[in-house]
Write a protein that binds this DNA or RNA. Structure first.
Lengths: 330, 330
DNA sequence: CTGTTAGCGCCTTCAG
DNA sequence: CTGAAGGCGCTAACAG
């Protein structure tokens, strides 16, 4: 009978003592690549379970240099989009015995850098989601640690993005098929890679004469509210918003002005948030979140193990037609 | 010139060598209560800054037993309510040099227990937010580690809750003042302490003859959608929903049925989520989230330092009147 | 006030 | 295949 009885408080020493073997044998038995006899491993595993052993991460980290944890940098956890990224990353990481430190930067590039500097010693690498900082500074702060970008490209670093151009194209085609010609886009902040990407794609898809460019806005919802009047004044009959929150802001103000959606204005969002979290049946371009987060975790872990080249993946986007778009009334 | 040049990679040894003092002196100089001469402390701090020193958490944890991190258990990060709790806890913790591990349990009591068992060795204590597990099991899994409950009471443990009874009372008074008599409540899951609390308060406030009790529902938004028809059939002219997401579900279905809100039905939510995240101007009872999270972090840290008795705090709730409630039409 | 000395729990050579 | 020994970076007695 060992002296330690509290749950999860036994060490390899307890196991070693219990079994009459050395601690290094226990350590090896518990290590994936460890070289021990099958019989010994079996006994160690049995004892570990019986004694409710759980490795002390701090000790392991100190000795291996690997922290078994990753830092996730997100602009704003309150945005359902990022909440889902966080959730996805967290679950995937846990399944491979890693934990995720989440840093919410309140949409401040400065805080992004600060968070990275702060956490760099405590994590094996970073997942940097849709950061606002500029390329140079970001690269500088990330120098020396592994990192995977999510929904942003940064030359030299692996990334998980989605096919925004295709998403915009799908949205434009959908609106054209409904008879709309004069189409507006409410652009997101210029500091956002995704916003620049969407705008560029929009400019490619919609010819000068038909194109109405609004924004850029800063705060999503309030920006949408604030842009609705300009949208009405522009003569556009349909709009593609930077994201769903912006679309929600637009819809809110449009309705307040007595303009029906979709009859008076077709609105396409971007992100494809859940109807449940939106409480509005918004036509929207779905952008993968949980899948992106999972892929990013995998890429990061692969990079840490130096397995293969630092690849980047581009996930597909898909238009979801719901109730905020309708044929043009003439 | 030291050999370590990479950012954040120097140790107290580097500082000690640089200054020609011992490592323990450096350690003491860097410890709040450390006993060193002001001059030495100054020099150490200068060198630490110059060498970009950052303490290795793993090493410190191993030696002190304190991990400088806390586990946060939340039912669902996608729910804006919990996302804000997470954000608040994270920011407060960071300000006192702690980090937060977030565990999302997908509204499963089983996963709550699992997460606690999983993380217990890696954190100093837990913040358990609105857990669904029953008292006994929860207490059992939490035995031996510090914990603060958020939005749930558990005898023997400190907690941060809000005055739900007052919130319900405020909502009922508001509706009565608008002329409503027959008032419904859509109750949340029985496994939720907050849901039971709200329902009990509602039963206290509204007399048998006027009272309509609906639910309990499981999934917030879908539950609201699914309950709207029963609500209409009940003859109630106003409803207090378990939370804002439920209210949103109700509103969605009511409108689909052609019932105007607030003219055909007054709807009061609960939580007081941002208009921006709701995109609906819902009258609602505001429940503190960030403040609650911050208080909880403070309580936990105090408990860990064994400063004072394990107190509990009850924060006020406040009705926010927006556009989903209106005078009864007769 | 400062230096010396032990570990914290684990992993990892190196012998055996 | 297994045991002994050293060290990861830091803190905490204990002397001086």
């Amino acid at each position: 009978m060992t002296s330690r009885t509290k749950a999860g408080r036994s060490t390899i020493h307890d196991i070693a003592a219990d079994l009459g073997v050395s601690v290094s044998t226990v350590s090896r038995a518990l290590t994936p690549g460890g070289t021990v006899s099958p019989e010994t491993r079996r006994r160690v595993e049995e004892a570990a379970g019986r004694l409710d052993y759980r490795a002390n991460r701090a000790a392991r980290s100190l000795s291996t240099g690997r922290m078994h944890s990753i830092g996730l940098i997100v602009p704003d956890l309150r945005d359902p989009f990022f909440a889902e990224v966080a959730k996805g990353a967290q679950m995937r990481a846990r399944s491979v015995d890693h934990t995720v430190y989440i840093a919410d930067t309140d949409r401040s590039a400065e805080l992004e850098f600060e968070a990275i500097d702060m956490m760099r010693r405590d994590v094996d690498g970073f997942l940097v989601c849709a950061p606002l900082g500029d390329d140079e500074a970001l690269r500088e702060h990330l120098r020396g640690t592994a990192a995977v970008m999510i929904h942003r490209e940064l030359a030299g670093l692996p990334s998980v993005t989605s096919d925004l151009a295709s998403g915009i194209a799908q949205a434009v085609q959908h609106l054209r098929a409904l008879g709309h010609h004069r189409i507006a886009h409410v652009a997101g902040p210029d500091s956002s890679w995704g916003a620049r990407r969407r705008r560029a794609a929009f400019e490619r898809e919609v010819a000068d004469g038909d194109r109405v460019l609004l924004g850029p806005i800063a705060d999503p919802f309030e920006g949408g509210v604030a842009t609705a009047d300009a949208l009405l004044a522009s003569g556009a009959t349909a709009v593609i918003a930077y994201n769903d929150l912006v679309a929600l802001g637009l819809v809110t103000r449009l309705r307040a002005r007595g303009v029906s959606v979709p009859d008076g204005m077709s609105v396409v969002g971007f992100d494809g948030l859940d109807v449940a979290t939106l409480a509005t049946s918004l036509t929207s371009v779905a952008v993968p979140r949980q899948v992106a987060a999972r892929s990013a975790v995998d890429l990061l872990l692969r990079a840490l193990d130096e397995v293969g080249e630092p690849a980047s993946v581009v996930l597909p986007t898909q238009l979801i037609v719901r109730d905020s778009t309708a044929p043009l009334r003439r």
